[in-house]
Every structure is written in C-alpha cells, then in structure tokens.
Design a protein around this nucleic acid. Sequence first.
DNA 1: TTGTAAGCGTTATCAT
DNA 2: ATGATAACGCTTACAA
Lengths: 339, 339
Amino acid sequence: MATIKDIADVAGVSLATVSRVINNGPKVGDATRERVKKVMEELGYRPNANARALVTRKSASLGVVIAELLDPFFATLAHGIDAVARRQNVQILMSAGSIEKQTELKAIDTLLQHRCEAMVVHSKALDDKTLVEFAAQVPGFVLINRYIEDIGHRCVWLDNVAGGQTMARHMLSQGHKKFVVVSSKYQIDDPIQRLSGIRKELALSDIELPESHIEFSTPDQEGGEIAMRNLLARGIEFTAVLAYNDAMASGAMTLLQDHDVNVPTDVSIIGYDDVLLAKYCRPKLTTLHYPVEMMATKAADLALAYARGDVPDPSVTYKYTPTLVKRDSVMNRHAGQST
Amino acid sequence: MATIKDIADVAGVSLATVSRVINNGPKVGDATRERVKKVMEELGYRPNANARALVTRKSASLGVVIAELLDPFFATLAHGIDAVARRQNVQILMSAGSIEKQTELKAIDTLLQHRCEAMVVHSKALDDKTLVEFAAQVPGFVLINRYIEDIGHRCVWLDNVAGGQTMARHMLSQGHKKFVVVSSKYQIDDPIQRLSGIRKELALSDIELPESHIEFSTPDQEGGEIAMRNLLARGIEFTAVLAYNDAMASGAMTLLQDHDVNVPTDVSIIGYDDVLLAKYCRPKLTTLHYPVEMMATKAADLALAYARGDVPDPSVTYKYTPTLVKRDSVMNRHAGQST
DNA sequence: TTGTAAGCGTTATCAT
DNA sequence: ATGATAACGCTTACAA
C-alpha cells in the first residue's frame, strides 16, 4: 500500500508537503497541492490510521462497550452511537461485555490499548471505583445507563425510580388495586430502582407489594413466561402486571393468553423500554418509552466532545425520564375500557 | 500512559528485553522476566496497539460492515461475529453501511485506513468488480450473504433460490393453490432469487404468479402492512402469502387480522429468516430458518484465517440452505388443520 | 511556499 | 541472555 513517501517521490516534493496536503494544511501552493492530490489519487493512497494515531496521540475512533448485541435495546443504543460516529467521521470500536466483570474489564482494556480517548460504556458489572478510575484516565469516558456521583457530568442515565412510579401511577389511575411484578433476576441497579419506584407509588395508595407478588427471572420473553407461570401457579390474584421490560411483558402476556386469560380485560400489563416489539405484539403494549437512541446520541457526542478537549457545561447533568405510551394492554377498570 | 521505555528504565533493562517479555519471547532469564512483569504491573502498562500495528503490519482487529444495527437480522450477524472476535482476542471495528454505495464504500475505506487485514462485509450496494478489487487488496476479505464467483471461496452465502422453492413447496404440499407474494422493493439479489425459486417451484404445479400478485415494499413490518393492504385493495383472491421475511410476514398478518381475516384458517402465511419475532407473534410464524449466526461465525473465522495466512481448503464453498420451521401460521387445506 | 529532521511506541535484526 | 539500533508511516517544529 502506498505511503506518504511514495507520494512525495512521485510528486517530487517532500514528505512534509504531502502531509500538509493530506491534512489540508495552509502553506501549500495551489499548483503543488493539485499535483500531490493527483498522485495520491493515482496511487490509491490511504493514510495509515495507526501511524497517525501514534504520532498525534489521537485515535479518531470511538470505543463502545455494550452488554449484548442481540438485545434490541442495545441494538438501538448502538444505532444511536453509530449515527454520531458517522457524522463525526470516527471509527467505532465495539466490544460486547455481557454484564460480566472480567469481560467488561477486558473490553475496556482493549479499547485502552487502542488508545481511544472517547468511549461510551454500558457497564453493570464493574464497581463505581473501577469506573471512576477509568474515567480519570480517559478524557472522553462516558457512562450510559448508569449514574455515579463522582463523575456525574459524564453519565447519561435514566431515572428508573420515576419510571417505576409512572408505571404504578398509571395502573392506579385506571382503577387497579391488585398488583404483581415481573422483574429481572439480575441484581443490578435498574430492577431495584424500578421496584422501589413502584413501591413508593403504591404506598401512596396504601397498597403493599409482598415479596410473593414479585417474580424474578431473565429479562427476556422466556423469562417473562416463566415468571408469569410461577405467579399463576402460586394462585395469586391480580389484575395488573408491571413488567421489567417489554420482552418480559410480551412473554407474560403470551403465557396468560395460553391460559385463556384475556389481556387486557382480565389482566392488564404494562411494559418498559418501548422497543419495536411493544408495537407489534397483540394487544399492543402500553409501556414506558425509554429514549435510548437520544441518550446514546448524547453520550456519543459528549464522549467525543470531552475527548476533543471541549468542556461542556459542567453544571448540567444528563438525566432522562421515561414517558408513558398508552396502547392496548391496560384496561380502565373504572370505565371498563382499555386505555 | 507508561511506555515500554518507562518499563525498561525502571526495571533496568533494555527495550528489547521488555518487548520480549511482553510477547512471551524465548530468550529471557526467569529472574529478569519476573522483574519486568512486576514493573509492568506496577505501572499499569498497556501495549500501544497503534505502535504495534504500525511496525508489525498486523492490526489484531476484525472489520465489520453491515447494513443496519437496528435490524434483528444484522444484530444476530454482529453477535455471531462478536463471539469469534472475543474468542480470538481481536477488536471489532464496526461500520454500518446502510445499503448505500457511498456509505459502504466509505465504511470499507475507513477499515482499510486502519489496516485491518480481516474483514467480513455485508454489501448489497457495491458491484462485483469493486468488491473483487477490495478482496485482492485485503487477504482476509470475506463477503457474507452474497456470492461472487471470482472470490467464491471467500463468500459465505445462503441459497435463496432453494429458499424460495422450499416456501412454495410447503404451501403446495398443504393444498394451497392461490398465491400472493409480499416482497422487498430493494432491487438487490435476495428478493429476486427468492422470487425465482418460488416461480420455479410453482411452475412444477402449473401455477403462474402474475405480477399483480406480487407487492413490493420496505422489508419491515410497516412494509408488510402496506403490501398486504394493496393486495387486499386490488381484490385478489388468495389463501397463501409468501413473505420476504418475518417482519413483513408479521406486518401482513397484523393487517389481515385487522380486517378480520383469520390466520391461518382463512389465509396462511410463511415468513423467512426465523428471527425472534417469528416465535412471538400470534399465531407463531411458520418460516424458513436462516442460519445467520452460524454463517457469521464461519465468515469471521474464515476472515481471520485468511488474514493469518492460513489457506482453508480452496475447493470448499460456504453455501448454506435455509430450512423449514413449521409453526402455526400455515393451514393444511387438505386436512383442514394448521401445520 | 517548501524541506529537514526528530520523534510517536513498538518489533526485529544484529551484535555482544 | 541481553542490548543497540534501525525501521514502521506519519506529524510537526524549525530552517531555508
């Protein structure tokens, strides 16, 4: 592959001049510039990103650590990041961390070896301290979907407590009184926070949520089925199910339907995330919209900005709030209509 | 960040020795090795991947070009690739190409700038010639989901004609005689090949498929709805719909149901791909399983092998065949039962 | 406006 | 077993 030297030789100029042309440097004569460009074209020259990164100490790349590419939630996340990467002309270095300490650690480590100064990481397995240390090393280190106070201005996160409250409040407003929760068995912050929001809101109406009314499983459709099966088996009475996410909601719904329980007339369900699935399952899922893509975009922009040395207003934080999307899986028990 | 020189200074050895330790080189005394390792540990040393790539001309990374991260099909693809990347300890450089000539070109170009010698690319917009040229430049250039004869041993692809035949054959075997096709409007090979397979198979039963029975739209759920709406509006009679993929099938199904057409008793539907959606829409979709993940894994392995200089048996080709997955969206019109 | 040369962090080839 | 030293391809003062 042609190097800058080859171009210089053929064009009859020095390395420096070629470099200037490549980088649209200022002090080059028009004639020379054209000639060099022509030679580059002819030789199919492509600047060596590695050499460049080495000397400039800038990698023109954005590191991304997410849990799992298959999950539509993360796919959306990745998609949002990709959009800004493309816009800002940086290459994405992608690693899946699978919510495992060692894997997440290794993913970040590899990114560090590549010396990428901007990275948006979704980490649930690593502890605060570790993450804060990384943040200290990498100027453009941004956390998504997690809040750590010490680096609060580098966190783009969702208010899960508020989310839990909104779910409960909506069901309450529709006249529901008997609740059941289908949650994620992974002991990360999210399910805990959502649950606490739910409890907080229910408490305002003097409703308790006993442990037996909560079932924990994997946060996917199968997990939703299993959780619902267990709830049914336990003979608990309920008219409202609050799911950890849309996938679990859909699974739970499927199982209910298989048992001839009608949704929403017999039982109402509300999901969380508002991924595509929510719109296409039957009945369509009432859920909380998680503005992942917007958040991903913000996170990527932020990471790149910090890496560039820009200092965004340090007083602002990037907290997002999920919003209710009413579709067809929740019935109004006052009016007897689905809302 | 600590460099190899820092390590050498602190450990009191030369650069060469440190380099040997890093690479588990042979000729280093045990005592020295330990001492150096200890220093590396203390200083939190991380080899600079850029410097390494520069001098070795090997990038320890795998380039990936796919159309669209959001699409579950590509998410699965990416997931398969990620698995081998992790196993083989290489970093993924990911670019979305969005089935646009310029974008795909740029994606590959960027990968080339990073000098990655292994890449698996999913390109539908670039022409054969361009792709063959890239393949000539990059030892580990592997095409997925496309077959080009000149570089046949570097293509991992699906037999779409056979797929089309299988769809039609299944419907035929279930006693269907009136067909309609919901296809993709993108004029890439896939829809054309599937359609030709369908026609070929129907011809064996002396059934024609007039253009008016085919509706082209975007290959997603909304496209499926639109296509089906048009078919219905045109007043065509049919009992079997062959969809381009599961998303379109699901959209078509939804629209049918909204018009009180029962699936599968009134109309049977068959999808293609077998993504998660197929299992979770109602009724569950009978479809063709596209072994994407397996293919992605193979492609990644192949790319890395070629990049390494290994020469896999040049006589074998990597053609895969989709297989029928019977679920609940197709009815047997002989027996009157869904099959 | 153009060229010279040092240096980025490694690996690899010689010597020793 | 260890150490100098020359690349690798590029950017960037500093000279001219």
